[in-house]
Amino acid sequence: RQGFVPAAYVKKLDSGTGKELVLALYDYQEKSPREVTMKKGDILTLLNSTNKDWWKVEVN
């Protein structure tokens, strides 16, 4: 499932696989259909980080 999360809630990881991955630093509950819920410690695939406030991710 793809959607947006606050950029301040995730940290980029060095995956070494060519995929950009991020680590969820905090729990986040989606507040609109365009967002996704994540739990602290989740590893997500980063799809787009051009917006400084909201990053598009895919929940694996």
Results as ranks from 00 to 15, higher is better:
V10G: 01
T37I: 03
K12P: 08
N51S: 09
V36D: 00
V10K: 01
V5M: 00
P33R: 06
I43E: 03
K31G: 08
L44I: 06
Y9P: 00
L44Q: 00
E20A: 15
W55P: 01
L23Y: 09
I43L: 08
F4M: 08
I43V: 12
K56G: 06
Q2E: 06
T50P: 03
E30W: 06
K11L: 14
D14S: 15
V5C: 04
K56E: 14
N60K: 13
N60S: 13
K52G: 08
N48S: 12
P6V: 03
E30G: 15
T17G: 15
Y26Q: 14
K56F: 15
L25T: 05
F4W: 15
K56L: 15
G18V: 10
N48P: 02
K11V: 15
I43S: 03
A7M: 04
E35D: 05
T17M: 13
V22I: 07
V59P: 07
D42G: 03
E35N: 05
G41K: 02
L23D: 01
L47G: 01
W54N: 02
W55E: 01
T45I: 15
M38R: 00
T17W: 12
E58H: 05
S15R: 12
Q29T: 15
G16D: 15
P33K: 09
Y9T: 06
Q29N: 14
R1D: 05
A24H: 00
L13Y: 10
L13R: 03
L47Y: 03
M38Q: 02
K12A: 07
E58F: 05
Q29Y: 15
P6M: 04
D42T: 06
V59E: 09
E58Q: 12
L13W: 08
V57G: 00
D42V: 04
T50E: 14
L46C: 05
G3K: 03
G16A: 15
Q29D: 14
P6K: 03
N48F: 06
S49C: 11
Q2S: 11
K52P: 15
V36R: 02
G3H: 02
G18N: 12
D27K: 02
D42F: 04
L23C: 10
G41A: 03
N48E: 15
G18I: 10
P33I: 10
E20V: 13
K40E: 07
L47I: 15
W54P: 00
K31L: 09
G16S: 14
W55Y: 07
Q29C: 11
D42N: 06
A24Q: 01
S32K: 07
I43Y: 06
D42R: 02
W54E: 04
T50N: 12
G18C: 13
W55T: 04
W54F: 07
K19W: 09
E30L: 07
D53E: 12
R1C: 09
A7I: 03
Y26N: 09
S49V: 07
R1S: 07
D27Q: 03
E35I: 03
P33G: 09
E20H: 14
W55K: 01
A8G: 10
V5W: 01
P6G: 02
E30H: 10
Q2P: 05
I43G: 01
K11W: 09
N51W: 07
K39V: 08
P33N: 10
S32G: 12
V36N: 02
E20C: 13
T37P: 08
L47M: 07
P6H: 02
A8Y: 11
E20K: 13
K56M: 15
K12R: 14
Q2H: 09
Y28V: 01
Y9A: 11
G18F: 08
R1H: 08
T45G: 08
N48C: 10
A24T: 04
R34G: 14
K12N: 05
D14T: 13
L47P: 00
N48A: 09
S49N: 08
L47W: 03
G3R: 02
S49K: 10
W55C: 02
P33D: 12
V10A: 03
N51R: 10
D53N: 13
D42C: 06
D27T: 05
E35C: 07
T50S: 15
P6S: 02
G3F: 08
E20L: 13
R1Y: 07
Y26R: 15
S15K: 11
V22K: 00
P6L: 04
G16Y: 12
L21G: 03
F4D: 04
L25Q: 05
Y26E: 11
K11C: 13
W55N: 01
L23V: 15
L44W: 03
K19C: 11
D14F: 12
R34L: 14
L47T: 04
L44F: 11
L46R: 00
A7W: 02
K19L: 12
L25G: 02
S15W: 15
G3N: 01
A7N: 02
L47A: 02
E58M: 10
N51K: 06
G41W: 05
N60A: 12
A8R: 15
V36Q: 03
D53A: 12
R34M: 13
L23S: 05
L47S: 02
V22N: 01
V10E: 00
G3V: 04
S15I: 12
G41Y: 05
V22H: 04
V22S: 03
R34W: 15
V57N: 01
L44A: 07
Q2G: 06
D42M: 11
L23F: 08
D14K: 13
E30Y: 04
L13D: 03
D14V: 13
T45H: 10
T17C: 13
I43W: 04
M38N: 00
N60G: 14
P33A: 12
K31T: 14
Q29V: 15
E35T: 07
E35P: 04
S15G: 12
K11E: 10
V57A: 01
K12V: 09
A8L: 11
D53F: 15
L23K: 09
N60T: 12
D53R: 15
K11N: 06
K39W: 09
L23W: 06
K52V: 11
K40W: 04
A24I: 03
Y28N: 01
T37N: 07
L21M: 14
K52Q: 11
A24R: 00
K19F: 10
G3P: 00
D27W: 03
D14Y: 14
M38P: 00
D27L: 02
K31H: 09
L21I: 09
L21P: 02
K19P: 11
N51V: 05
Y9M: 12
G3L: 05
Y26D: 07
S32L: 06
R1G: 07
F4P: 00
P33W: 10
V10H: 01
E58K: 08
